[in-house]
Structures are given as C-alpha cells and as structure tokens.
Design a protein around this nucleic acid. Structure first.
Lengths: 107, 107
DNA sequence: ATATAATAGCGCTAATAAGAACATTTATGC
DNA sequence: GCATAAATGTTCTTATTAGCGCTATTATAT
C-alpha cells in the first residue's frame, strides 16, 4: 500500500481535487461550509482538493451528492461504459475467475 | 465522519463496488491477482467491491488504471461536465468564496 | 492600502482502515 | 457428482487517516 503512487494515478487524483475545488467555488461554498455538509472536517475537504491518495471514498461520494452529481459516480464504471468486455452481458460474466496455469494475460 | 451514510451515497458506493467486481471478472482477474496489481491486499479489494465507505481513493484510481479506464476519473467532475456552474469560465471562478452574511443558498 | 476572512501548513491524539491468518461457503472444471 | 480453489466472513494487530488547535499566508471587500 505504500508503493509509490503511479504518476498517472497521482495526476488523476490531483485533477479530481482541482475539479472538486472548482465545483465547490462555483456553488459559492467555502471549504468550511462544504465540510459541514459532508459531515466532516475542513482538513478532509482540503486533503481531497489537493488530491491526497488516502482520503476515504465516502467523502468523494458525499461531495458529489452535495453538488448534485452523484449519478456521475454510478456511470463511472457502469457496464455500459466498460469498453473492454462489452461483448459479455452482465449475466454471462462468471461469478468466479479461475487463475490460469500459465499467464493468459487478457490485460 | 461517523454520521450515518446517506442512503443514496451508500447505494452509489455499493453499485460502484459491483461494477468494479464485474470489470475485474470481465478481465479474467481474481481478487488476489487484482490486489497484487494494485499493490495492496485482497481484503482491500474485497472492501472496495462491497462498497466499504472508508477505502482510500487511491485504490479506486489504481483499479481504474489497471482496467485502462483512468480517464473516466478525469471526466468525473470535469468542468465541461459540471452542469451547475456552466456559465462561469474556470478563470472566472473566484479563488476564495466569501461566506454570505445571511444565507444566499445557491444549492 | 488595509482589514478581514478563507485557505494552507504542522504537530498531536483518537478513531479507523489495512493487513495477515484462519475457517467457511460455494462456483466451476473435471 | 466431486474436488479444487475463489470468494466470503471473522478476529486480531498494526499503520494510517481523521479530527482538532494553532499559526501563517493571501485573496477580496471596503
């Protein structure tokens, strides 16, 4: 868990933070006001806005709810959006995957 | 932070977990294989797939990267997607928001 | 320009997630 | 159907985050 964060991941988290900050300011909320609505502290809001890797998922979700964008989270990895396994209907995706003897590396 | 999770938020996290599980299985990865790629433990993968509110944001981001869907995170709250304050260009969004004397509740 | 309030940074403590090892259930290949 | 191993559930320990108070910086309104 303490592996260095991959650069693209770090970049994505930072961008998400900036976007969260922009969304908040667009809605005329201070960090303190948002924190109160999220039921958390200002520090957590700040960590989220700076792209801190360790902040809990729930605060992102709660922030999205406050912003009225919670449905975006639903779409994030929705089957309809998943470009890789589009050929498989959800019902056809196996419940369990068997580890191949060799490497059958799909990815 | 220990406020009860709002129902819609809880629901969204659970759905995200299911979607993560589906995405993993579509790519023929076991929880153990994914955990190794994420540089974390199987427990964390499991918690993520069950929609545990406290899992760190970084694991979601890393999973998306493994799935080749990291760009989805960029789009999540991108300005272009933010339907509320579309009228304001990013550069026009104030750096700091002043708390109104009364309540000017934009949201 | 100045005053004020929002944002940023730091150290400490309490709460919580992450990790490991084990037992149990159950899908899947044979 | 049976055997295997993936997924689930549990408990305990450890590492990390969340929360709080204080100080410093800096954008904004006047």
């Amino acid at each position: 868990m303490n592996l260095p964060l991959p650069i693209p991941v770090d970049r994505a988290l930072k961008k998400l933070g900036v976007d969260l900050s922009l969304a908040r300011r667009r809605r005329n909320l201070t960090q303190a006001m948002l924190a109160e609505r999220l039921g958390t502290s200002v520090m957590t809001v700040r960590r989220m806005e700076t792209g801190h890797p360790g902040t809990a998922l729930q605060y992102l979700a709660r922030a999205l709810q406050v912003f009225g964008e919670l449905d975006k989270l639903d779409e994030l990895l929705d089957s309809a959006q998943d470009t890789v396994g589009l050929s498989l209907m959800n019902e056809q995706v196996p419940m369990r995957v068997r580890k191949p003897k060799q490497g059958s590396g799909v990815l």
